[in-house]
Amino acid sequence: MRFWNTYVLAHSIEEALDILSHAPGSALPVAGGTDLLLEIQQGEHEPVHTLVDITHIPELKRLEETEDHLFIGAAVPVSRVAESPLVRHHATAVAEACSQIGGPQVRNSATLGGNVAHALPAADGMIALLALDARAEVASLEGRRLEPMENLFKGPGQTALDLRREILVGFHVPLRRLHQASAFGRVMRPQGVALPILNTAVWVERHGEVIGDIRVAIGPSGPVPRRASAVEAVLRGQPCDQETFAAARRAIRESIRFRSSPLRASAEYRYHLSGVLLEEVVIKAWQRTLEPSVVEAV
């Protein structure tokens, strides 16, 4: 009945992988634990024999700009992600999403790695990473690899990672170039469950007065998170105007199968909101494409 028997603070990826693969009973990596520990406490997840805390591994706490990407360590608290000038510039949608996860205390524990590993179809941080075309760096006993975000999910709440052998190291987000920008938005309902009815993240590249390129992620829009490629297709190459949004709304209806969930929202309400939210978020990102292309003050 104990939530865990052994709780290990790992100090390196190798140590964490070693303990995970050799632990006598069940074993899982844990970062903020704001999902996993809660589920264990509430009996929705079996107690775990060995929990390997990865929040003391320096590499997983890195948040830095490299030559071609922004690296956000999997164990960086989302409060730090939300406030980071680097993230706010290069991955505005991720910063916006992270600033809305839970409350301030939760954000000091919760991590993007956990948000992604928990694999819920509408996790705010994950939806934003998806729109930003981030790639996840995964460490295993065999070495490191980069995975597109889409490859990390098997089903609702089911990660494709083998958590006995693999650890999320962090996320590589392409650096923001001139005339590129991103944004995130969501709609909640005040009652019932604390999950958003709908969230949307958008990355856009402006070509003059048309949407040169765009990526859209909408959650929850299926068992696993995925980009809304049919919606992207109707927006791409079009001006950012009402006609385009009308087409996007049609594309949402034709390509996305929203579900009705009795305590959160009907599918009809989600279709309507999705059009409203998409327009709001695209316009927000579109306006940002005119911002300067360098980080103002790091």
């Binding site: 709780y7 634990g33 704001t34 805390d53 929040t55 301030p104 205390q105 000091n108 524990s109």
Partner: peptide, 12 residues
Amino acid sequence: EPILSCSFPAVR
């Protein structure tokens, strides 16, 4: 930093 101690492992 403020955290929620009810779900914060003491070992952490």
